[in-house]
Computed example of a mutant assay.
Amino acid sequence: MAAEPTDQDEIFTDASELSENDLFKLSLELTKLPKEELDSIRKIIGVAPTEDIDISSLDPKTLNRIRMYMRHSVIRWKNLQFVVMDTPKNKSMNAYVQICKHYNVTTVCCLTRPEYSKQKFEENGIDLHVLEFQDGSSPPSVVVKQWLKLVKAEFGSKTTNEEPTSAIGVHCAAGLGRAPVLVAVALVEYGLDALKAVELIREKRRGAINQRQLHYLRKYEPDDNSCTIS
């Protein structure tokens, strides 16, 4: 019988129960990742930068860390950087915090009703902001205003060509609708075309942004002239 999952373990399927086929699929997914993401995984699991990641030799806890890492997406444009995630659970909070610390995330926006304690975030200097709105819908104006206020506080009112040094974490339930659409809103506010913003996000997060949200973004007009491209 598999051991009870700890707070660092992935809660959906215990990695100790993965079949050979599951391990093969995970290995295949790793080969498709760009070098920078593979380097990030190596750093998180403590593997040397020049060392190959041998899935078959890893213990269940390390496999879970890899699987948790691969469930988030990093959206970068100029000096803006967002980490899009699905919702954490109490038993997976350590892994989420580790990802946040890796990208220097000090602000996390929760767009659904949180089903976890914010204690782990607080203990690691991460502020949690709940901006809940309906699943599958477009964000109401009050949420957009609160979101853009947080984005401006993190990145300033203008974009630069410098590499991002921090990021904002954002999650909804699956990380495919509400979180990506708010990231797209931020990118549009800072000067990126709406359809290009959607394309950029979908390159990193397949299946993101439904048709209703896409229609919203096509019609969206930036209402904050202080967010500009430089």
Score class of each variant (00 low, 15 high):
Ala2Ile: 10
Thr6Ala: 00
Thr6Val: 06
Phe12Cys: 09
Thr13Pro: 00
Asp14Ala: 08
Asp14Pro: 01
Ser16Tyr: 02
Glu17Thr: 15
Lys25Asp: 11
Leu28Tyr: 15
Thr31Glu: 15
Leu38Trp: 07
Pro49Arg: 03
Ile55Leu: 09
Ile55Thr: 08
Leu58His: 07
Arg65Asn: 12
Arg67Gly: 04
Met68Leu: 10
Ser73Cys: 06
Asn79Cys: 03
Gln81Trp: 03
Pro88His: 03
Pro88Ser: 03
Ser92Ala: 07
Ala95Phe: 00
Val97Ser: 00
Cys100Asn: 07
Cys100Ile: 02
Lys101Cys: 00
His102Lys: 15
Cys109Glu: 05
Lys118Gln: 10
Gln119Val: 13
Glu122Trp: 06
Ile126Gly: 05
Leu128Arg: 05
Asp135Ile: 01
Gly136Tyr: 12
Ser137Leu: 05
Pro139His: 12
Gln146Lys: 15
Gln146Tyr: 03
Glu162Gln: 14
Cys172Tyr: 07
Ala173Met: 10
Ala174His: 14
Gly177Gln: 05
Ala179Ile: 04
Val183Met: 05
Val185Arg: 09
Glu189Met: 04
Asp193Met: 11
Lys196Ser: 12
Val198Phe: 09
Ile201Cys: 03
Gly207Thr: 11
Ile209Ser: 04
Gln211Ile: 08
Gln213Ile: 04
Tyr216Gly: 09
Tyr220Cys: 09
Pro222Tyr: 04
Pro222Thr: 03
Asn225Ile: 06
Cys227Trp: 07
